[in-house]
Computed example of a mutant assay.
Amino acid sequence: MSRDHDDWVLSSLLDDLARLALSRDQITVSELIDTLGARGFGPLLVMLSAFLILPVGMVPGIPAVSAVFMILIGGRMLTGEARLWVPARLGRVKLTGHLLAVSVARAQPAILWLRPLLAPRLAFLIDSMVMRSVLAVILMVTGAVIFVAGFIPGLPFVLSLHVLVLGMALATRDGLVALIGYCMLLPEILLIWRVFL
C-alpha cells in the first residue's frame, strides 16, 4: 500500500463527511455508512471514536449507537467480512448536519498533524489472522462496556481513545500505532476496575 493511498484514506474520509454534513440538516446513520464506501473498518472506527470525543458524542444516544457499531464491526471482523451490515432500525438514527460539520472541523487539524506519523510498518501486528481476531474481541468488549455503562460521564470518551488509535492503525496498516493502542488498554482496564469493583 502506498503512502499516497494512506493519506487519501484518512483525509478524504473527513472531506466526504464534511460535504455530507453541509448538504442537509438531518443525516441518518445509513448515509454515514454509505459515505464511507469501501474504505474498510479502520476509517469507520476512527469516525466512531471521534464521535465520542467530539461534540457529536454529547448527543443522547450517540454513545449507545457507537457501542453497537463497535460490536457489529468486531463480529464482522471475526467472520472475515470486509463490509459492515447495519440493521434497518439503527440505520434510521439521525443526527444534525451542523453538529457533524462542527465535529469534522475540529477533527481535521488533528488528522493533518498525525498524517506524517502514520505509515505501513510492522503490519503483522494488525494484518495477521490472530491479531485481527484479538482486535475484533477488543472492539466487542469495548462496545459492550460503553453500551452498558456509557451513562457514566467521561467513560465513553476514555474508552474511545484506544479505538481511535486502533482505527488509525487499521486504516494505515501501521503496526507500531496498533501496539500503542493495545498498550492503552491497560490503564483503561484499571480505570474500569476502580470504578466498578
Score class of each variant (00 low, 15 high):
23 S>N: 10
55 P>I: 00
169 A>F: 02
54 L>V: 06
113 W>Y: 06
7 D>P: 09
148 V>D: 15
193 W>R: 13
96 T>F: 00
16 D>L: 10
30 S>Q: 07
18 A>V: 10
161 L>T: 12
189 I>C: 13
110 A>S: 12
54 L>I: 04
95 L>Q: 02
5 H>F: 14
179 L>Y: 00
131 M>F: 13
156 P>C: 03
140 M>I: 07
87 P>L: 09
26 Q>C: 11
1 M>I: 12
24 R>W: 00
52 L>D: 04
185 L>F: 10
185 L>I: 09
83 R>P: 07
193 W>N: 15
172 T>W: 01
131 M>P: 11
119 A>P: 01
133 S>I: 01
116 P>V: 04
37 G>S: 07
87 P>Y: 03
185 L>V: 10
36 L>P: 04
129 M>W: 09
84 L>S: 03
18 A>Q: 11
19 R>P: 13
73 I>V: 07
78 L>Q: 06
22 L>A: 15
44 L>Q: 04
79 T>C: 14
156 P>G: 05
35 T>F: 05
29 V>R: 10
187 P>R: 00
82 A>L: 07
32 L>T: 05
134 V>F: 04
74 G>C: 02
129 M>F: 12
84 L>N: 04
178 A>E: 03
106 R>L: 12
129 M>Q: 13
108 Q>W: 00
115 R>Y: 00
176 L>R: 05
13 L>G: 14
51 F>R: 09
54 L>Y: 07
45 L>H: 02
84 L>M: 08
121 R>F: 08
136 A>W: 02
131 M>A: 14
95 L>M: 08
88 A>I: 03
13 L>H: 12
73 I>F: 01
157 F>R: 09
11 S>N: 12
132 R>S: 11
57 G>M: 03
78 L>W: 01
158 V>Y: 09
9 V>P: 04
9 V>G: 07
194 R>Q: 13
59 V>R: 08
167 G>T: 03
114 L>V: 06
117 L>P: 04
121 R>H: 09
193 W>G: 15
55 P>S: 05
121 R>S: 14
47 M>L: 11
139 L>G: 06
89 R>E: 11
86 V>W: 04
12 S>Q: 09
36 L>W: 00
91 G>M: 01
1 M>E: 10
82 A>E: 05
111 I>Q: 10
10 L>K: 01
163 V>E: 01
40 G>A: 03
153 P>S: 11
91 G>C: 01
71 I>Y: 10
129 M>V: 14
35 T>H: 06
144 A>Y: 07
171 A>I: 04
140 M>G: 10
60 P>E: 08
193 W>K: 13
62 I>P: 11
140 M>P: 05
181 G>M: 01
111 I>A: 14
40 G>D: 02
178 A>F: 03
197 L>F: 13
156 P>I: 00
167 G>R: 03
44 L>H: 04
15 D>E: 11
145 V>I: 08
53 I>R: 11
166 L>V: 02
177 V>G: 10
26 Q>M: 08
120 P>F: 08
16 D>Y: 05
177 V>K: 06
50 A>H: 09
98 H>A: 12
28 T>H: 03
28 T>A: 11
42 G>D: 01
66 S>K: 09
66 S>Q: 10
161 L>C: 14
85 W>V: 15
79 T>V: 13
126 I>P: 08
11 S>C: 13
152 I>S: 15
